[in-house]
């Protein structure tokens, strides 16, 4: 990476089921992930060839996809002829053109087109680093592909993929419910503090306004030339 960052170290993993999953996965060795990822990549290429066609203008480009709540990162080598995806350690140095960092759920939602990439950037849920053109191209390319992570990941399992997909769907629903519960708990914990912060912010804004009004008032009396009416 080139070391430029869009708030790289600021992103705190959200309280979510993935965070607990990530803690549980902390001791799984990386090689375990490589084969399933390679298979998933093959499925994506077969089903969504347009992704790599759309990325074509960039030439071969290396991306780091970094889910903040998992104990590893993904290294995506986007190329028209030989794209690849593998897991790498959080601290492994890679010469990537760009990285996207955020909670796994947001990354998957982005990949599947459920969230608008721009919206995520506006709200700073996702953080990008490195070559902006590459990130924009990647986001546009996956956006146009209608990727379904569960289906595409499970496709390599062949006849087992049907039942497995049902398990995944159930797990997802459960995760959503847990996420909602966690959100409620989080809200209850920090609501009083948030209320105070909002009051303070409002007061600051009012003060800002008063100061700038006063500055402007001073300037108006001093600076403007007298003019005839048109």
């Amino acid at each position: 990476m080139n070391g430029r960052g869009a708030g790289r170290d600021r992103l705190v993993p959200p309280l979510s089921p993935v965070l607990f999953l990530g803690m549980a996965l902390r001791h799984v060795p990386l090689p375990v992930y490589q084969l399933p990822l390679a298979l998933a990549m093959r499925a994506v290429r077969r089903r969504h060839g347009s992704v790599f066609e759309r990325l074509g203008d960039l030439g071969e480009t290396v991306f780091v996809i970094d889910p903040v709540d998992l104990p590893f990162r993904f290294l995506l080598r986007a190329s028209a002829t030989n794209p690849s995806l593998r897991a790498i350690a959080k601290d492994e140095y890679v010469d990537a053109k760009a990285s996207v960092r955020g909670p796994l759920k947001s990354l998957i939602d982005l990949l599947e087109g459920r969230i608008d990439g721009d919206s995520l950037f506006f709200s700073r849920e996702l953080v990008m680093d490195g070559d902006t053109e590459a990130v924009v191209a990647l986001s546009n390319a996956v956006e146009g592909a209608e990727i379904d992570v569960a289906r595409d990941l499970l496709a390599p399992l062949g006849p087992l993929s049907g039942p497995a997909a049902r398990v995944v769907a159930r797990a997802r629903r459960t995760a959503r419910r847990i996420a909602a519960d966690l959100e409620t708990a989080r809200g209850a914990t920090i609501a009083p503090a948030m209320g105070r912060a909002e009051t303070l912010a409002a007061r600051l804004e009012a003060l800002d306004q008063r100061v700038s009004d006063m500055e402007r008032g001073g300037k108006r009396r001093g600076g403007v030339r007298n003019v005839k009416a048109p």
């Binding site: 869009a6 708030g7 902006t132």
Partner: peptide, 15 residues
């Protein structure tokens, strides 16, 4: 404002 010319830099904790 083409993305090829867009850069983000972190300077003193600000973006």
């Amino acid at each position: 404002s083409p993305p090829s010319h867009v850069h983000y830099e972190e300077v003193g904790g600000r973006l």
